[in-house]
């Protein structure tokens, strides 16, 4: 009797594990998604709610309490009470537009050149990748060292080759500071986009190239009528990613110019950092963060709608 009993228990026990095993097998896909969703929800939802909440408050440093100000922080930024906000927004836009268009044009040119039956292509691709791998902070510091107005090698080379008549303090003039800031951004981010565009170019089938050649298409004609339409999806991906990369850029501006000279290269990202971390106005900083978040979201939605309209048309 007793043995039968334990046997039944064993079967029951076994069946429990089998069942567990079976349901693990059945729901394996669902279980596998869980950790990702959990981490992302935890790390995105809580802070986002917190930043929106913070945006409605202002910290009274003397009384050490949070004071509810409603839309006060938003009004302060958007109505122009804080004149700097729109100026820095303008800087950000300038930065985005210039770095995106010039950078993308350069990337397309290099990708096309890489795709035109050259020797040592692998070597070129490997070397072009390097800037993207180094830490952005070191990239900014390296260029800053090369542009140093007393000992910088690049400054020296520009003098030797006759472009400058003496060592030039690039970071004391807003125009030259901007040019080099945009250049460092392009230098650093290009590799990623060159690879994406290059992969797109390799999809162009050989017979189309042949057909165009037989039809006597010139290089420029070929470029505008075959190359560009073919890699349009890649160009769109690059455009959106680049815009977002530049919009959120903090490292280069912080390390390279610190927003200077004075505040002529200050952008929204560094301004938010300064306001919340140095001036300790976390409420106002949060409100500007939300504005920036909405800007990014609007840009993405606008972009996706454009693409969708194009696909349907």
């Amino acid at each position: 009797m007793a043995t039968v009993h334990t046997g039944a228990a064993a079967i029951e026990k076994q069946s429990f594990f089998t069942r567990l095993n079976a349901s693990f097998d059945k729901y394996f896909e669902a279980i596998s998604v869980f950790p990702t969703i959990f981490i992302i929800l935890l790390v995105i939802l809580v802070p986002t709610i917190l930043v929106v909440y913070q945006g409605f408050y202002t910290k009274d440093i003397i009384l050490r309490i949070m004071k509810f100000v409603g839309m006060g922080n938003y009004v302060r930024a958007l109505s122009g009470v804080d004149v700097d906000f729109y100026r820095y927004l303008g800087h950000t836009m300038l930065y985005v537009v210039l770095a995106t268009t010039v950078g993308l044009a350069l990337c397309i040119l290099i990708a096309v050149l890489l795709n035109s039956r050259i020797k040592f292509r692998g070597v070129f691709v490997a070397c072009f990748l390097l800037p993207w791998m180094v830490p952005p902070v070191t990239a900014a510091i390296m260029w800053k060292w090369m542009l140093n107005d007393s000992y910088g090698v690049l400054n020296y080379l520009l003098v030797v080759t006759g472009f400058l008549d003496r060592m030039f303090p690039f970071f004391s003039h807003s125009l030259s500071a901007w040019i080099w800031l945009i250049w460092v951004d392009i230098w650093y981010n290009s590799p990623f986009f060159i690879i994406i565009l290059f992969a797109g170019l390799q999809r162009i089938p050989d017979d189309i190239i042949d057909a165009a050649t037989i039809d006597g298409a010139g290089r420029w004609h070929f470029f505008t009528h075959v190359t560009i339409p073919y890699i349009k999806p890649e160009i769109q991906i690059c455009l959106i990613l680049r815009t977002i990369f530049v919009l959120r850029n903090f490292d280069f501006v912080y390390v390279f110019t610190r927003g200077g000279p004075v505040d002529s290269t200050e952008v929204l990202a560094t301004y938010i950092y300064k306001v919340s971390m140095h001036f300790l106005k976390q409420g106002y900083g949060s409100a500007m963060s939300v504005i920036m978040l909405v800007m990014c979201a609007l840009f993405t939605v606008f972009y996706l709608l454009t693409v969708k309209a194009e696909v349907e048309a």
Partner: peptide, 30 residues
């Protein structure tokens, strides 16, 4: 595994990438 809203979940995961890091500095700090 496609369940109801699995595309939305994927979209949400991808779009979390679009959040500018600077916007999360203050809440992360807190």
């Amino acid at each position: 595994f496609s369940f109801r809203g699995s595309r939305a979940v994927f979209g949400a995961i991808l779009s979390s990438r679009l959040v500018p890091p600077i916007a999360l500095v203050v809440p992360f700090n807190l």
